[in-house]
Design a binder for these strands. Structure first.
Length: 259
DNA sequence: ATGGTAGCGGGGCTA
């Protein structure tokens, strides 16, 4: 089972980008973030035509996540549990019924800038709420993947110019510590199970010629439960996607599981 | 210090 996470930065503005990518790469499961639309206007038919089952959790203008799957989906959950007041659409999860059942959680973590401030507080509280959800799923001892745009640069080797990011919500010590706490619950960063190399990025800003200068950061991650890590065949970043026609500022990050 | 780009939606916010 090949699973890709992809912050598409507007699924309608980049529909041709998504459709071309799905046709070429044929992910079994695609986890989209920043669809930036409500469920009613998600381009469902166009994607279903390629053989995908679709589950969306959308929102007007901002945020929004979707699961596209060639395999059946069960036990859908929309929204990160733990705060009924939270109206931001940043979480959707389902069980993908492959050779093995895999619990797949698709997340779009708050950016958190400017920091400090209320947006940064929201990011940190969201991370705490995610911890509780991770613990509940870990307790079930099932293969599970927590994938998406974490808006966290885990380490200095994950950013080309660390000094430019010191005060940014994506790289502040509090954000990195919260990411480590997730890992310390017993999750594995799939890319780091495959390579220790620096300079492996998943995002290059649209501004300042970041792509041309390879001024990137790694913020899109797959965290695996031990049972999912047991099934890991490979993990990679589809860097070439950043150079194509009408690219997102993020590129797809992949895992292949024996499932 | 500033502005540089992009999507949504039709001004300013979010990133």
């Amino acid at each position: 089972m090949r699973i890709a996470t992809y912050n598409i930065n507007g699924v309608r503005a980049r529909l041709e980008t998504v459709l071309g990518w799905l046709e070429l790469q044929e992910p079994h499961v695609a986890l989209l973030q920043e669809i930036k639309c409500v469920d009613e206007v998600f381009p469902r038919e166009e994607i279903e035509r390629l053989g995908y089952t679709i589950a969306t959790h959308g929102q007007k203008s901002f945020n929004g996540v979707a699961i596209l799957s060639k395999l059946p989906l069960e036990d859908l959950v929309r929204g990160l549990p733990g705060d009924d007041e939270d109206e931001q659409a940043r979480w959707i999860e389902a069980t993908v019924m492959g050779d093995r059942a895999v619990r797949v959680c698709n997340l779009y973590l708050p950016n958190g800038n400017p920091a400090p401030g209320p947006k940064f507080d929201y990011k940190l509280s969201w991370l705490e709420r995610m911890q509780a959800r991770v613990q509940a799923i870990l307790a079930s001892e099932e293969p599970a993947v927590f994938a998406g745009d974490y808006n966290v640069i885990p380490e200095a080797r994950d950013v080309r110019r660390p000094d430019d990011w010191r005060d940014d919500a994506l790289f502040r010590p509090e954000s990195r510590a919260a990411f480590r706490r997730l890992e310390n619950l017993g999750l594995y960063d799939a890319i780091r199970l495959r390579t220790q190399a620096p300079g492996v990025y998943s995002f290059w800003d649209f501004q300042r010629g970041s792509w041309e200068r390879d001024d990137g950061i790694r913020i899109d991650h797959h965290l695996l439960t031990p049972q999912a890590a047991d099934l890991l065949r490979d993990a990679w970043i589809e860097r070439d996607a950043r150079g194509g026609t009408k690219p997102s500022d993020h590129v797809p990050v992949w895992v292949e599981l024996e499932a």
